[in-house]
Design a protein around this nucleic acid. Structure first.
Lengths: 116, 116
DNA sequence: TTCATACATTGATGGCGGTCAATATTCGGG
DNA sequence: CCCGAATATTGACCGCCATCAATGTATGAA
């Protein structure tokens, strides 16, 4: 198993889009599709929404299991996908795992749309 | 079969997000996920990219079959998904079908991200 | 050390989705 | 009217994915 980077940590300013015209190559398309795949599930969207709505900016798994009607392993599974996509950040403190939105990640996705 | 609306034709200005805080409901999440599902395939991203890059603003299926390495039925299938998601517009002139980007559709998707 | 809690991982299962071959449909030309 | 071209639809196959039950791992407390 490999946890691939997918979403660049944050690409400086506007600078790195080859041309924009020659249309997406097969490889770039594959990479970008990974991010949208992570967003292509209702429960994952709700997870992002809940984490984002939290005033503290972070949520532990136990707070996320109830709102959705899913088992804990399934929630952990979805969270891993969101982390691998570069959308969520995971920090373990004690027994708990706290998930928070990666700053600017959603904007980066919006950027992906603009550079199609 | 039903071709659902999914992406609103264009929601006026900033106006229609209930609150933003109470997190996504199950139903809204399902609807929004449909749009991202449409974007969650490399070949569909390439289709959007090609159509967008076309100077005329539109492409027929025959122009789209070659760049991707897919059969004609598969391309038509992907195009239908993009149309159902509200991302592409289909106009049939004679024997040909011309596909073009729905104006503002990609921006609407970016809006979906902002209102998570 | 032992136990309980919070979370992650594994394995299995059912269903959805991408692809193709074959066929249907629609349109323009002769 | 008949034929060929462009596209859409159908049916089938297969791999991937969401979900759960069971188990593993790690941390803190007694």
């Amino acid at each position: 198993m490999k946890t691939l980077p997918v979403l660049d940590p944050i690409t400086d300013e506007a600078c790195c889009t080859p041309a924009g015209q020659p249309a997406l190559g097969a490889e770039e398309a594959k990479q970008k599709a990974l991010v949208f795949k992570a967003l292509a599930d209702p429960n994952r969207l709700r997870l992002l929404s809940i984490v984002k709505a939290e005033s503290s900016g972070e949520s532990c798994v136990c707070d996320l299991t109830d709102p959705l009607d899913l088992g804990q392993p399934t929630v952990s599974h979805h969270l891993k996908i969101l982390v691998d996509a570069g959308l969520l950040h995971r920090e373990k403190r004690g027994t708990w795992a706290y998930y928070s939105l990666v700053p600017g990640a959603l904007d980066s996705v919006a950027g992906l749309l603009a550079t199609l």
